[in-house]
């Protein structure tokens, strides 16, 4: 399942997408994120899945553009900590 968290506004598309078919619930991204944007929750689309999935916290969903700003300088952007930490390749950012 592709879980899109974020929003679209006049200035662009701001979504973090978690691919639950890849996410193995290791929790590495939660630890890697410096501002606690991510958390582990029960699968939001499948109540019968036995493992947790990574998700964007409710608090950050509405302001994700600003929450992630520190990791995204306009020039020489380094690898994003969350994306780099995910060996499964389950995290995508739309911006």
């Amino acid at each position: 399942m592709l879980a899109h968290y974020g929003y679209k506004d006049g200035s662009g598309d701001f979504f973090i997408t978690i691919d639950t078919d890849k996410c193995n619930a290791c929790g590495d991204c939660v630890v890697a994120c410096p501002v606690q944007v991510l958390e582990m929750v029960e699968d939001e689309g499948d109540p019968f899945r036995e493992i947790l999935m990574a998700a964007v916290t409710e608090e950050h969903r509405k302001k994700i553009k600003y929450s992630c700003a520190l990791c995204k300088p306009t020039a020489n952007r380094p690898a994003l900590p969350c994306v780099a930490s995910c060996k499964a390749g389950a995290i995508r950012h739309s911006w």
Partner: peptide, 11 residues
Amino acid sequence: GKVTAFLMNDK
């Protein structure tokens, strides 16, 4: 009826 993708309007 199993979810394959979702998107919420949270703004």
